[in-house]
Simulated scan of single mutants.
Amino acid sequence: MEYRFHLAAKKLKDISKMGHRSRVQGQEQHRGRNKNGRCYLLELPTELLLEITSHLSALPEACLALTCKRLFAISGAILDSKCLRFSRDFAPLFHHYRNGHSYVTPRWQFINLLENSEWRACSKCLKLHPRGAFAPKELRRKSENRTCNLGGYAGIVDLCPCKKLTFRDKTDLVDLLKVRQSFAGLSLQFGDRVNERFCWHSCVENYGSTELKIEIFPELDEQDNLVIWTYYRLSTGMGHLGKEEYMTPRFGCAHRSVDLWLSSVCQINTCHIHDSLCSSCKQISACSACSTTLKCHRKQPFHSVDSDRVTYHFSTLRCLGGASSLPDETWAAQRIHPAQTLVGVDSCNELCPWTIREHPPVGPPPSLGMEILDSAMNDQSLIQLYSSIHMI
């Protein structure tokens, strides 16, 4: 009897060993390796690997490129793909931007795949942060609901199609400007070029027949606030500005469309108050939600010679808050992500980028009276004319 139990126990051990061996072999085969640690995929010639990767979409190829050095050398260029970067324009044309627009992009899916025990995704910065940048309760949430330690002020400011700033990017820019300020005293040795205005970034984007050139000049003002001067050169067809079929999806701030804002500012030259801006002009020129201003010194566009195209030169001035290591309300007001309060067709207001802001029409023509003759009452002939009119 004891011998039978001994045989049964030995047989059970052999079966368990065989099961463990088959599971290990299955895992090794799943990883494309045998018991000697060989990877059959990497043994293929480069020509075949290039053929294989040519059939992959951007997201799988980007994951493959990060597995080893050889595959990175073959497919590493895919990491610079536009689909894995921030959307060049956050808000779809004539649609109110929603946070969900960013959570369905290949970039966000790629970020989720890169999460591990050391890095976690932030739903407001749309980037990976170290685990230490999150509170313990945030680490237990899904990526779409997780927020870093910046809390309600975390997010992204959209400056141009190429430049999107998180708050950490903003602090890096502030540090760069302070370093440049420390070099200001070198002008005596190296000339005035040291003090030239700092063009941080420039780019050109085409939207159909419209070309938009952008130059960004960051500065620190007297209160140590980061201000962004953005200069635009918008070239389009004659009569196309503000037309729906020629509209661009670019924003001048987080709340206003560049095209409609510019076309509204161009109306200011019709204002009957020439020496100062009226209240309507001020509302058109400045965003009441974030205090960004748009200036167009020449209301009339530049007409190209022998062409039906016109060019507008204008600029915006934005304040991104102080140089502190913590974000403030001024910074928060400039964010395009996360999206602001839900705005619909029935509740269009300052937060609606597609709101058309028109200058009110000039009032009715003045009646004949003292208010239009006061400036000329020193002329005796006009005084007699005015008296004779009233005697009729």
Rank of each mutant, 00 (worst) to 15 (best):
M1L: 10
E2W: 10
L7S: 09
A8P: 00
K10T: 12
L12R: 14
D14Q: 14
M18W: 07
E28C: 10
G37C: 01
L42H: 02
P45Q: 10
L50T: 05
E61P: 00
C63M: 11
A65Q: 06
R70D: 04
L71R: 10
A73C: 08
I74L: 14
S75R: 03
G76F: 08
I78W: 07
I78F: 04
L79S: 02
L79F: 12
S81N: 14
C83V: 15
S87L: 12
H96L: 07
Y97K: 03
N99R: 14
P106W: 15
F110I: 05
F110A: 01
E115S: 08
E115Q: 15
E118S: 12
E118M: 08
R120N: 06
C122L: 04
C125W: 11
P130V: 04
A133Q: 14
F134D: 04
P136W: 13
P136T: 13
K137C: 09
K137P: 00
K137R: 13
K137T: 08
R140N: 11
E144A: 11
T147D: 01
G151F: 10
Y153R: 15
D158R: 05
C162T: 14
K164Q: 13
F167G: 00
R168E: 08
V174G: 00
D175V: 04
L176F: 07
L177N: 03
R180N: 03
S182V: 03
N195G: 04
E196C: 05
F198M: 01
F198H: 13
V204E: 15
Y207Q: 05
G208Q: 07
S209H: 09
L212S: 04
I216H: 06
F217T: 09
E219N: 11
Q223D: 14
Q223G: 02
D224C: 08
D224Y: 08
L226A: 03
I228W: 07
M238S: 12
K243I: 11
E245F: 04
M247E: 09
M247R: 15
F251G: 05
H255C: 06
V258P: 00
D259T: 03
L260T: 01
L260Q: 06
W261T: 07
L262H: 11
S264K: 04
T270Q: 11
S276W: 12
S276G: 02
Q283L: 13
Q283G: 03
A286Q: 09
C287S: 06
C290D: 13
C290K: 05
T292F: 03
L294A: 06
C296W: 09
C296Y: 10
K299H: 15
P301G: 09
P301E: 02
S304L: 14
D306F: 11
D308W: 08
Y312R: 07
H313S: 12
S315F: 07
T316N: 03
C319S: 15
C319R: 08
G321W: 06
G322S: 14
S324M: 07
S325A: 15
P338L: 12
Q340S: 10
V343A: 05
N349P: 00
P364L: 03
P364I: 02
P364E: 09
P365Y: 03
L368N: 09
E371I: 01
I372H: 04
D374P: 00
D379W: 07
Q380A: 10
Q380Y: 10
Q384R: 14
Y386V: 06
I389W: 09
H390T: 05
M391P: 00
